[in-house]
């Protein structure tokens, strides 16, 4: 009966492979085949050990207090067998894993290169054409992509579950990821190296689109036709929303609603009114005035925002009442 339960469990576990995220590349399909092999081998092993265990304890349960047990000390052939068979299986798993890993690390020379920069707590992307984006980036389908990555502050890790790949992102040096997406769609990006308070909010989206759509996106000026407040709102969503609410409620930093023209009390005891110059200074040189009761956690955005984006952001904050 227990064997039945186990085989049901195993059946469930095999179905669970459908819990793997959508397969976005050839390598992802290879990882999933490896996963199936590991899962089935493991399940057989578990059934053997746990099934044998349950069979033995039920069959040889104590019948009376003066049961005599067999004196069996060892059996060298069995020891050899249950060392050698697992060893061979482990070597197959190792070899297969190596093969798959090697495909993941295959950086072809004609890759489309995209730079990614991690920073508490968002991702920035830069293309060779000069196009840049935050929180979201586009790549063309069926094209080898190389992500060249670094970090502005602490360790992060770039995880693309749909491609079954991840790579730590390290300040002071470059690391890289290679993949060739073969299915259009939107893919989730996670940060998988703990990086502080809002680690779990350090998300991004990757859009895999057709070549034409990709080129069109590359050409378009994201802020064309937008009002100043709308430009500011866009910047807010990409870079500020992780730490600041649009209402007055505290997140990591203060909420933005009602901030403009309010009286700010600072850690050193001084105070000032939050005018345009104060907000500008807070974005570019955040350490200059730290509001009382908050940690000096805000990073500087010096050099990361254009003059238009900065004005837009200030107008957006002013618009929040």
């Amino acid at each position: 009966m227990f064997g039945l339960i186990i085989s049901l469990l195993v059946g469930k576990t095999i179905k669970a492979s459908t819990f793997m995220p959508v397969q976005g590349s050839q390598v992802a399909a290879q990882v999933d085949s490896l996963y199936m092999f590991l899962l089935v081998t493991s399940a057989i092993f578990c059934v053997l050990v746990i099934g044998g265990l349950i069979y033995f304890v039920l069959k040889y349960r104590r019948k009376s207090d003066d049961d005599k047990t067999a004196y069996i000390s060892h059996n060298n052939f069995l020891e050899f067998l249950w060392s050698f068979i697992p060893f061979v299986l482990f070597m197959i798993m190792f070899g297969w894993g190596w093969h798959v890993f090697h495909q993941m690390r295959d950086f072809s020379k004609d890759s489309l290169e995209v730079h990614a920069v991690g920073q508490k707590w968002f991702w920035d992307f830069k293309y060779k054409s000069g196009k840049s984006s935050a929180g979201e980036f586009y790549v063309p389908v069926n094209t080898p992509i190389k992500l060249i990555m670094t970090s502005k502050d602490v360790l992060h890790s770039f995880f693309l579950p749909g491609m079954r790949i991840k790579q730590d992102v390290i300040p002071g040096r470059y690391t890289a990821l290679a993949f060739t997406p073969n299915k259009e769609g939107t893919y989730q990006v996670f940060c998988t190296e703990y990086c502080g308070d809002q680690h779990s909010s350090m998300l991004a989206k990757m859009k895999v689109v057709s070549q034409e759509e990709y080129e069109q996106w590359l050409q378009e000026d994201a802020s064309a036709g937008l009002s100043l407040v709308e430009v500011g709102q866009k910047v807010y969503e990409q870079k500020c929303a992780v730490c600041h609410n649009t209402n007055a409620e505290r997140k990591v930093g203060p909420g933005f609603a009602g901030l403009y023209n309010s009286e700010r009390q600072f850690a050193d005891g001084s105070s000032a009114v939050a005018d345009e110059n104060y907000i500008r200074e807070s974005i570019l040189v955040p350490g200059a005035k730290v509001v009382n009761g908050y940690p000096p956690a805000m990073p500087s955005f010096q050099g990361q925002l254009s003059e238009d984006e900065l004005s837009g952001l200030i107008e957006f904050i002013k618009s929040l009442k």
Binding site: V31, L38, S42, G97, W98, I165
Partner: peptide
């Protein structure tokens, strides 16, 4: 063992 298999561990 699954985690020791390098191509699997990456995911």
């Amino acid at each position: 063992i699954m985690l020791a298999t390098i191509g699997m561990d990456v995911h």
